[in-house]
Computed example of a mutant assay.
Amino acid sequence: MSDDSGLWLLAAGPAGATALYWALYRYYRNTDKSHAFERETEVAAKPVTGSDRLVDTVTGTQETRIRGDNVRAYRNRVMRDSS
Rank of each mutant, 00 (worst) to 15 (best):
M1Q: 04
M1N: 05
M1C: 04
S2L: 09
S2Y: 10
D3R: 11
D3I: 08
D3W: 13
S5H: 04
G6T: 04
G6A: 07
W8S: 09
W8H: 07
L9H: 02
L10D: 04
A11Y: 13
A11E: 10
A11S: 11
A12G: 04
G13T: 06
P14S: 14
P14N: 15
P14K: 14
P14Y: 13
P14T: 14
A15Y: 04
G16I: 00
G16W: 00
T18A: 15
T18I: 10
L20E: 05
Y21A: 13
Y21P: 02
W22I: 07
W22Q: 09
A23R: 13
A23S: 13
L24Y: 14
Y25F: 09
Y25H: 11
Y25S: 06
Y25K: 08
R26M: 12
Y27Q: 10
Y27N: 07
Y28I: 08
Y28Q: 10
Y28F: 15
Y28K: 11
R29K: 12
N30G: 08
T31Y: 12
T31S: 12
D32P: 00
D32A: 07
H35T: 12
H35A: 14
A36C: 12
A36Q: 11
E38T: 14
E38G: 08
E38D: 13
R39P: 00
T41D: 15
T41C: 14
T41V: 15
V43H: 09
V43M: 09
V43D: 03
V43G: 01
V43T: 06
A44S: 13
A45S: 14
A45T: 14
A45R: 14
K46Q: 13
K46W: 09
K46H: 14
P47M: 06
P47F: 06
V48R: 02
V48A: 04
V48Y: 03
T49M: 02
G50W: 01
G50R: 01
G50N: 01
D52S: 11
D52C: 10
D52R: 10
D52E: 08
R53A: 04
L54Q: 09
L54V: 11
L54I: 11
L54W: 09
V55E: 14
D56E: 13
D56M: 05
D56W: 03
D56P: 00
T59I: 01
G60S: 00
G60D: 00
G60W: 00
G60A: 00
T61A: 07
T61L: 06
Q62I: 04
Q62L: 04
Q62V: 06
Q62S: 08
E63L: 04
E63F: 02
T64F: 00
T64I: 02
R65Q: 07
I66D: 05
R67K: 08
R67A: 10
G68Y: 02
G68P: 00
D69C: 05
D69N: 12
N70H: 02
N70W: 01
N70K: 03
V71L: 11
R72M: 09
R72L: 13
R72N: 12
Y74D: 10
R75Y: 10
R75P: 03
N76M: 01
R77D: 05
R77I: 02
V78Q: 01
V78D: 01
V78L: 03
M79T: 12
R80E: 03
R80T: 01
S82Q: 12
S83N: 15
